[in-house]
Every structure is written in C-alpha cells, then in structure tokens.
Design a protein around this nucleic acid. Structure first.
Length: 496
RNA sequence: GGCGUCGUGGCCAAAUUGGUUUAAGGCACCGGGCUUUCACCUCGGAAACUGGGGGUUCGAAUCCCCUCGACGUCACCA
C-alpha cells in the first residue's frame, strides 16, 4: 500500500482562517492516522493579493494550534518547491505539452470581449460561461491577433456533455456534468501564470498526493481537476469535501461579515487555549467512534494526540458545521482549569503586563492563577480577575465601603481577623478559611456578614475566588495592611 | 436560473448502515445539592414523532418518489 500523502494548501491572501485551520486539522489527523505525510504548500499565484505577512500568520497559527508538517514551504522536503510562484515555468512547460497534444489551445479573447460575452448571456437569461470561441482558430486569425499584440491565455478543452464522477471520501458518490463547468478553462493566464486549478493539479502530481481533503466549495473544481489528471495521464488522488462553517444565521463565516472572528489569531489574542480551539474545531464536524471514550470519560473532550489515534474521515459530517461561540467558550473554560497550572500561568503572563510581576515569585503567580482560573472563560479576563492581588493596598469602591464595611459587625470581623492573623496557616487555603470560620462562630456572625467584609477589605469586591485561597494568595503582609486600612477609614474615606 | 450538496430538540450531534432507541451524548436553558455571592463541581429536569407529503416493508431517521428550505458553484480569485 502506498504511503498516504495529504496537504493543506492555503493562499497567503489573508490571515489564517478558522475554516482553513479546520481543514488543516482534518488533513493532519488523516495523515497521522494512516502514518502518512502532511505537507504545507503555498498557493501564492495571486501576486496581487499575496503577502508575506499572511504567510507568517498562517504558519504561526498552524504551529500555535500544535500542528506540524513533514514537508513544507518553510522546511523544504523531497518534492520542492512548495511555493507555486517558484515553479511558474514548470506549469507553463506542462501547459505547452497539453498544447501540442491538442488538449489545450491558445485563446486571444480580451477581458473586455469576455465581459461583453457574459453580459450578453446575462441579458438573455442564459447561464454564464465561456463559449469556447477560440477552440478552432485558423492560423490566419491567430497571426492576426498576434500582430495586434494580443497576449494569449491557454485554455484546456472540456468536452461536453460528459459526466465526471468520483466517490467522495466524505459525501459519497458525486457526479458533475462537464456542461456545468463553464466552458473550456484557462490554465495559463495571459500574464503567463498558471491558474489555481492548473497549478494545484501539477502540484498534487509532483508531490504525489494520495488524498485531498478540503471544503465543499471546491466540488466543481474537483471535477475540473479530475479532467486535467486524465489529460496528463496521471492517477488522481482521492477527494473528500467537508461542509463549510456557518454562523447561527446560515451565513458562511467570512472576513467580510464576521471580521476578526474568523481569524485564528483573534482567539490567540483573546486568550483561548489552542487545545480548546483544536478540540472544538475537530468536534464541529466529526464525532469519535461510538464505543470510544477519552481519558476524560466523555467523547466531547479529547486531545490532538487522542484524535490522531481514532480519526476516521468517514465520520466527518456531510452537513455544514455551525460555529457556536458558547460551545467554544465551554471548551476553553474547561481547558483553562484542567491544563497544568504551570502552563496556564505561563500563558497568562502576557495578560498581566499592567502589573508589576517582579512583585511576586513564579510560585506565587501560579498560586494566584490557580485561585482565579475557575472563574475565567478566556485568559484576557485574567487582568480584571487578578487585579486584587497587586499592590500593597487595594481600592475599595465607595458603595462597597458603605454597604459592606461600615457596620459594627463588619468592623468586628475585620478587627478580630486582624488579631488572629498569627494563627493563620497562610500556605494552606483551607486552613485559613477554617480560622475565619471558627472566628465567625465565636463572634456569632456567619454567612455574608462574615465573609463579605473580609472580601471587600481584601479585594475591593464581594465576588471572586474562594476566600481561603484569596487570603492565602495575598499572604499575611498584604492581608494585614488591607485589614488595617479598611479599619482605619471604613466609614467613608475614599482613598486606599 | 442551471448544476451540486445538505436537512434529527434553540444549537452541534449519535443511532453497530432497515430491527428492543419508549430517537444517545454535549452546549444553552431550568431546578436541587455543595458553597459567603458568582463560578467550579455534582445530581436531576424540560425539550425532537428525525424539513413536509406520499410510498416500499412485519418493521424506516435509515430505501424510493415528489415537494420545501438552506447552502455551494457557475472568473485570465484562490
């Protein structure tokens, strides 16, 4: 059996898109599952829109997700080049061959003429297509056009009608009639550059691809490409087409309509865990085998590694995927609190640049992150959640002061806690909490009346992580300072 | 418009590929427990006659026909 070879072939005309990432994931998983090779190829023949910065974003994004490839435009491999602009001549050379075999011909129609033709077809209510007008140009006509200085494009003959069929890895049998392909297709543009459909076929041949998994917006391209494989007398790869990703209104996810929401980088910046994105993206259109449960005891949560073992292209849904931010958030919250604390802490650092991190050791920072991570859905929220920790004192809003700190009971709680500080095992959250509880019992104060004054005095808010962890994180010095401050101006001072 | 693909609770989706499924599970939602609130965790609940209509069959979400809807595609973009 030949080795499985698949690829992701983005065009660097924009940042890494959610859909591209999902397709990359499926290809990657397919390769891993079959112990094959995964290739990253750049389809950059559109020199108008291509940009190096997009190439960087795409590569960085794929790596961030945890994907790696065996061959690619950045690392090379046995079938170079992996960038279409570096093999323009090669495409033209193959096109020449098609020309001499009669599979292709030169077309001298100008963009204006083609536009006029389409306009006319539109007027008549006919479907828009190329009318194959240059198929059998006489030598005289050709010389005349040449003399006019017209630059020809290469067109590939598409005989019609004729059914093109293939057994799609995801959708099952698909049939497309050549009459619906829009007429003879351009394979080399008049500027000498290969079109997408032509370059892809040559590349897939050169790189010996065995499977092509991509979005269903390529179904008609597949028909065209299959014809090209035939003309080139090469074995075509197997194809699989996934449904596209839509929003809740059945609109395709697009930069135009959804802005940054379609870019992987947006999620990285917002503080989503790559593990969550990967898990979510894979799960949107694919379900693990029925009898499988992950180490987590569920078939919802799984890692890339786990997916590599059990991925089966046949279980990719035929239907469209729907982007569901709630579910993504659920995944992210899950990973935020189940990933190793050290990992989350490292990833949290960039979000805490407002604070003076030299103030705390790495161990203290981990403790802090550990205390607040349960309440987060994404890391960008940690700035607000962790604010209470930094600085010796804390700002207590006036209304909180009045409502929570001004009563006699509140002052009693603060005062007693202050004098019990020496009894508190600060390294142990539960122990600290226990001391507070005991104290409450002695004072005959419990519930909110007991906890809220402490919360307010220590963090400026009545909400937040568990009181014990909070005090433990703050440590004796800050706790003492803040309790004192609250006690000294609990009746109205507005400064810290 | 032509051609193509898809259609199971509010959303995603399973159903050993026609047979104990009185249609899994997750998200969201609602309620109980745990908790100082929120959250986390945990337990439970409500929610679909499988787009609609016909067939075939002892039996259909699964097969056939019709119909509706959504989306894709009809470039010298990729």
């Amino acid at each position: 059996m030949t080795e499985v070879r698949v690829r992701i072939a983005p065009s660097p005309t924009g940042n890494l898109h959610l859909g591209t990432a999902r397709t990359a994931l499926y290809n990657y998983l397919f390769a891993k599952k079959h112990k094959g090779k995964f290739v990253l190829r750049l389809e950059d023949t559109d020199n108008e829109r291509s940009d190096e910065k997009y190439t960087k974003d795409i590569i960085d994004g794929l790596k961030w997700l945890g994907l790696s490839w065996d061959e690619g435009c950045d690392i090379g491999g046995p079938y170079p080049p992996y960038r279409q602009t570096e093999k323009i001549d090669h495409y033209e050379h193959i096109a020449d061959k098609l020309l001499t075999n009669g599979f292709a011909y030169l077309c001298y129609a100008t963009p204006e003429e083609l536009a006029a033709m389409k306009e006319e077809q539109k007027q008549k209510g006919k479907s828009i297509r190329y009318d194959n007008r240059s198929r059998d140009l006489s030598d005289e006509a050709r010389s005349k056009y040449e003399a006019e200085g017209r630059l020809p494009s290469f067109r590939f003959r598409i005989d019609e009608p004729q059914d093109v069929r293939w057994d799609d890895e995801i959708k099952g049998p698909i049939t497309v009639n050549t009459s619906d392909l829009g007429g003879d297709m351009v394979i080399i543009k008049s500027n000498g550059v290969a079109t997408y459909n032509f370059a892809v076929v040559i590349d897939d041949i050169d790189m010996q691809m065995t499977h092509v998994l991509r979005g269903e917006d390529h179904i008609h391209n597949t028909a065209k490409q299959l014809l090209l494989f035939e003309a080139l007398n090469c074995k075509a790869p197997h194809y699989g087409h996934t449904g596209l990703i839509f929003d809740s209104n059945d609109r395709k996810l697009s930069k135009r309509e959804h802005g940054e929401l379609v870019h992987i980088d947006f999620y990285r910046i917002e503080g989503y865990m790559p593990e969550a994105i990967v898990n979510y993206l894979i799960k949107t259109s694919w379900t693990p085998p029925n009898d499988w449960t992950s180490a987590n005891g569920t078939d919802e949560i799984f890692s890339l590694i786990e997916a590599e073992q059990i991925f089966d292209i046949k279980r990719v849904s035929k239907a469209h995927a729907r982007f569901d931010m709630d579910k993504l958030n659920w995944y992210n919250a899950h990973y935020l609190r189940s990933l190793p604390l050290s990992t989350v802490t490292e990833r949290a650092r960039p979000y805490l640049t407002d604070f003076d991190l030299s103030e705390c050791s790495n161990a203290e920072l981990e403790k802090l992150v550990g205390a607040v991570r349960d309440g987060l859905t994404k890391l960008s929220e940690i700035k607000a959640a962790a604010r209470f920790f930094f600085g010796n004192l804390v700002d207590v809003p006036l209304d909180v002061k009045e409502q929570v700190l001004s009563s006699d009971d509140a002052r009693k709680v603060l005062g007693e806690t202050l004098s019990s500080l020496s009894k508190m095992p600060f390294e142990d959250p539960k122990g600290v909490k226990h001391v507070v509880d005991t104290l409450g019992k002695e004072l005959g104060i419990k519930g909110k009346n007991l906890y809220w004054p402490l919360r307010a005095a220590l963090s400026g808010s009545t909400q937040g992580p568990d009181l014990g962890s909070m005090m433990s994180v703050l440590g004796p010095n800050k706790v003492q300072a803040r309790l004192k401050a609250a006690l000294s101006n609990g009746n109205g001072g507005s400064h810290v």
